[in-house]
Design a protein around this nucleic acid. Sequence first.
DNA 1: CGTTTGGTTCCATTATTTGAAACTTAGTCT
DNA 2: AGACTAAGTTTCAAATAATGGAACCAAACG
Lengths: 261, 261
Amino acid sequence: MGAEGHADGTVGKALDVLDMVARHGRPVRFSDLLAQADYPKATLYRLLQTLTHQGMLTLDPDQGTYALGVRLVRLAHAAWAQSSLAPIARPYLDELAEKTGETIHLAQMDLGQVLYVDKRNAAKPVEMFAQAGKVGPAYCTGVGKAMMAWLSPEALEQVIARQSFLRHTDQTLDTPEKLVAELQAIRARGHAFDREEHEQGIICCAVPILSRSGRVLGALSVTSTTARTTLEALEGQAGLIKDIAAKIAAEAESWRFPEQN
Amino acid sequence: MGAEGHADGTVGKALDVLDMVARHGRPVRFSDLLAQADYPKATLYRLLQTLTHQGMLTLDPDQGTYALGVRLVRLAHAAWAQSSLAPIARPYLDELAEKTGETIHLAQMDLGQVLYVDKRNAAKPVEMFAQAGKVGPAYCTGVGKAMMAWLSPEALEQVIARQSFLRHTDQTLDTPEKLVAELQAIRARGHAFDREEHEQGIICCAVPILSRSGRVLGALSVTSTTARTTLEALEGQAGLIKDIAAKIAAEAESWRFPEQN
DNA sequence: CGTTTGGTTCCATTATTTGAAACTTAGTCT
DNA sequence: AGACTAAGTTTCAAATAATGGAACCAAACG
């Protein structure tokens, strides 16, 4: 509801509607949307019509329900391929997955949330959008904390303001104060841990991917379970993870314009 | 460029700009976009600003270039997960890939183009250009023809109008007439072939995925190379592919509302 | 068969978008 | 340096597109 705040212009409203449909996670009727949008009936109607006409939504004529359109998938493919991190990082993720035998995550920051842009499963092969595109909280994940720890003070403040600080497990850092203290430790140490803060039994070691100028590009993590390994063992991989992160950063930096290399 | 035609309203224009950035495939400067858009400077400028502010684009401040934003990846994940086909089809694609040992494609129709929504690579990867989110032509691919063959006359007309009929190989059906004749044969036969019409040496057998009411939901194909197999051998799999397509269709139909969370 | 619910269209009002032109940098050349 | 140029940003009155209250239509309901 009030969560969205300032939707600038018509475009903002349209995108807001798009998000609303996305959030539902399944086809929605006009009235469902009307109930939770605070746009007047006619406005919402025309917005939906425009988006549908544009292929961003599809209207199932039988059910009278709207769902996200395929045009988005096409756009996202382009987004993924052209974001400087994900496509470059691919071979490095493979390498890291093979060397560690664990699950690898590559994440970026998106409005205070962690957005997973790629993943390697311990056993299974690449699954494009099934995994990439998922979002998670920043304050209780390894990649989230790794990125936050190297954010500028202003940026960090904004991100912290967007955290829910829900107590997912009894290890969860559930206040901004605890988190800030942890971030300091992470910066000093050079890598972040997830000590079962998000899910019971899931631990990870994460490092940031930084540009030469120190800007946070993303984060890389190796995830495992307490059943299979320990934090200490994971920390043993920290050097390797950092090396890979550095390689990704270096290549991301030099890759900017493929035509002029 | 007359190509875009009717961009209805501001939203349409904004999405048009988004597509323009996507088409470039790499970060673009303002002036690059200005050169090929026929929007006036100020208009384009504000459009870009809005999109950037909305997270659909990101502006690299150092380079002064725009690229697609991560918000799109997030939206696309939702789009992928909520399109009735792709997530449902996943286990079936695995099954088909395992049974045939060949490359599997799952595609949907997007404005006259084929949009690949999922893929399984053969053990020996046939290096083709398709991955989830990628698009391809409809008139010279197995999945494209399989879907077209079951489209309503009106829908088919629209799709045909959007084909380029470029002669990719000397097998390519390069006129609407040849294509329409082929579609009739496909409908009669129940499955479509790609006889090296798009890429030399690449062949496939494709079937449509149809809803109970006969609407085209997508298409499923098994792709291989002339080096490894023959069309006749592929046709031997047609029954299997059809069975799988039918299973996917059935589940898609019954799945409409997966009550979750 | 009257009523409710869900969706679509009207249309005068209003606010937003528009785009030529002016302006500001930042970069290049002489 | 100073003069020129290219690239990006801002202005402002005019034009246009979005708005939303209300009327309308069509099923489904009781």
